[in-house]
Design a protein around this nucleic acid. Structure first.
Lengths: 226, 226
DNA sequence: TCTGCTATGATTAGCTT
DNA sequence: AAAGCTAATCATAGCAG
């Protein structure tokens, strides 16, 4: 739609790509919300702009993937802590076995040693992490009033908790060694969380909601920060 | 667009809701892929039909949430198995301590007992689970040829593995007790995995891909199974 | 870079098959 | 249900400011 029929193929001109993205993003978000309301269905839509800025459109979904991930991280971490503690206590007995030269007991305790190859811990990759600060709220409104909703650090709880438990860290086999969970993955997680992040990079989540339809005659007005 | 202007409000007539969903879902998927190709951006779109059938549209995304979840589940499970084994071996020593009436040793061993309150295991909720069978492939094609691609059980690996390790099962605090991970959550995970599930319920994942644009003159033809 | 305009192509509501 | 048709509305490409 437009003056000419456009072939669906990567736009090589960067300005054109950005302009088209901005227009079409609004269109698809409006359609997503429209579909969700009309048909009363769950929907998740996440897009990343050519510069990497994520936009989220979610409605009605009752299951929280990010919570699941955090919960799993927490549980794996707690289990690891528990194992570490057992190791520590066992070392007392192992040493005792050594000094007593009681070989049978020694062997028994040795069999308790944990060397689970599936759990790899890295001490180092907390370094290089960007410090996240929560900024202002990018939002869509059904009017032309520009709004600026400041979000306090309330959402920082879970993430902060997870990160402060260094040096223990799970490593995922399918990710490259230098993959930084605090960048790409967090963007998605926080996007899904409907949170908002400002990093050194261009990461401000654009959100879209039903207010669009409360003032039916006006096109949505995008109030964002980049 | 259509014969009349439609107010964006829940359609109360069920047939109308289903018909509208089908039409608009195709429209929004086409737009999502178009946006992703034109602007060369990542996109995730998940919709659930009024009857609960998920449709997925994903392009270019390099981070795999479902893999992360599976990996976390696996690691938590392995850790738990490990702890269980330690318990088993410790019980030998605890019993030994009992029979010897050596109170100091007994207490030492008792201190090794694992009663981590954060890890709750349920034995029972593997029951009620539907047996998942991988069926045929629902797909979009840019032609009117109906295709029927049978998928072997290759995708069953991770899930099958995870499930076969019953009776151990993690429980998530934010979910109700009767929440069945094998239903709702798995639908999302497998949808994200671009997998395909047939259950007793209406769960066949509809997928959408770029082939649509290889034959530009024809509208997309949906070949699905329900 | 962003906003508004508008001709034009794209989508779809209601209908039929 | 599911597919095809068409009038009507909607989205947007290219341009202007």
């Amino acid at each position: 739609m437009g003056r000419v029929k456009r072939k669906i193929k990567r736009l090589e001109n960067t300005n054109c790509r950005l302009a088209t993205y901005a227009k079409r993003k609004n269109g698809i978000m409006k359609k997503a919300i429209g579909l969700s309301i009309l048909c009363d269905v769950d929907i998740i839509l996440i897009m990343f702009s050519p510069s990497g800025k994520p936009s989220l459109c979610r409605r009605k979904l009752s299951i929280h993937i990010p919570e699941l991930i955090f919960d799993l991280c927490d549980q794996a971490r707690l289990l690891q802590t528990h194992i570490n503690e057992i190791h520590k206590r066992l070392s007392y007995w192992t040493d005792l076995g050594k000094s007593n030269s009681e070989n049978i007991q020694k062997q028994q305790f040795a069999s308790l040693q944990c060397n689970n190859p599936c759990l790899k811990i890295r001490d180092t990759d907390i370094e290089g992490s960007t410090s996240y600060s929560f900024g202002s709220h990018a939002n869509y409104l059904g009017s032309s009033n520009k709004t600026d909703i400041s979000i306090s650090k309330q959402e920082n709880g879970v993430l902060g908790d997870m990160r402060s438990t260094s040096p223990m860290r799970l490593q995922f086999s399918y990710l490259p060694n230098n993959f930084n969970l605090l960048n790409d993955m967090d963007i998605i997680i926080m996007t899904l969380n409907q949170g908002l992040i400002s990093t050194s990079g261009p990461c401000v989540v654009t959100m879209f909601d039903e207010h669009l339809y409360t003032q039916p005659s006006f096109p949505p007005m995008h109030i964002g920060f980049t």
